[in-house]
Design a protein around this nucleic acid. Structure first.
Lengths: 199, 199
DNA sequence: TAGTGCATGTAACGCGTTACATGATTAG
DNA sequence: CTAATCATGTAACGCGTTACATGCACTA
């Protein structure tokens, strides 16, 4: 038997790209855009990370590309999954998933807010509440669009729209909770700045 | 040669350490433990990252240390904030905070789940739901402890307990939402009819 | 005698961000 | 005339994780 010469395990970004390519052949530029909305909200990357990763995936034979020549646009490389790539994606989906470590500077600041003045902190919390409220509104709008476009397909597990649906749901829940926490914090902080008149 | 002395801006981890030291002088080992519960749930680091960062903070004169000799334990360096360190912490608290980018492999997998078999995925979602339910229970227990110990101080903004309270609240909301999403996903994947009633 | 806790460091490696680089076309 | 969009790359740098390294005291 042949020794397992090179296992080549893609990075998580690699699997993200495979997941996007499973929905249709795309160029590196398309993938860069795709990793913004809405999946990219839970796994993003810049083009400088994507192009080298595509090269590695191709070297590992999980994807392949062909050049599409364009006249009024630069030529582009359109990538597609190979059968190995499709299998690798399925394997990854079935493998155990690590619980992500969170890194949130705002919560870190909240831990030390007693060391600062409440008035400015309250304003910061209001601002962040607004940001998350905006994200929430965007996701809800997208979910409405999705429902209009895909209809009952968003509930069909073998439809690619189900994935979008799942991500949007997660985004909506996440943003709603974050917004509520920010507003709760702001309320706490403003309650005290009323008491303290001279700041 | 005499450039107007580099300002030395600490990393976010540096500020996390300053925030911990603002609550009392501690050794690097203590800080390593402190960055686990409960603040560390939103900003963690290993000791291999902490010791060099402490050295940098000290070089920047934001902290200083003195050696405490111990007989039945190894000697230790106990670090404390300087006045510059305290000021740097306050400045950081008042400065704008970036909205964190999320990286969540489970949500990424959800996006591609249509490419896999639902049965295994449902089990994975149940497992993650259990993990987040356990985190939730732990945070709720800690909040109960905190209420018993600190009493009304958890509501006083100038008390360091308020920071713990704030972080625990965020943790509770986050874990509850994540658990609910996992269970909703599992319900969808298992094909139960009650899953479709949500929203 | 093996493992855990205390206590402090260094080194290697990979991932992610920012910046550097180029260059055509189209819209305001 | 300026900016944005399309399109693809490389390079530098910092942060975070894992592993390497040491050593004593107490417990199972």
């Amino acid at each position: 038997m042949v020794e397992p010469s090179k296992p080549f395990v893609p990075s998580t970004l690699g699997y993200a790209l495979l997941g996007l390519l499973a929905r249709g052949a795309q160029s590196g530029y398309d993938l860069t855009q795709g990793l913004k909305n809405p999946v990219g909200y839970f796994w993003s990357a810049g083009h400088s990370q994507i192009y080298p990763e595509l090269a590695r995936l191709e070297a590992g034979r999980l994807i392949h590309h062909h050049v599409v020549e364009q006249t009024e646009r630069p030529d582009k490389k359109v990538y597609a999954l190979t059968s190995e790539g499709s299998a690798a994606l399925t394997d990854w989906l079935g493998a155990p998933t690590a619980v992500p470590r969170k890194r949130d500077e705002l919560v870190l600041k909240a831990y030390s807010l007693w060391h600062s003045n409440p008035a400015g902190a309250a304003q910061m919390m209001r601002e962040h509440a607004a940001v998350h409220a905006a994200h929430l509104a965007e996701f809800e709008t997208r979910l409405t669009w999705l429902t209009d476009e895909a209809g009952s397909a968003i509930w069909q597990l073998d439809s690619k729209w189900f994935g979008v649906h799942a991500v949007l749901r997660r985004g909506i829940g996440y943003e709603r909770e974050y917004r509520d926490w920010c507003e709760w914090m702001a309320g706490c902080l403003e309650g005290s700045s009323e008491a303290k008149t001279g700041e």
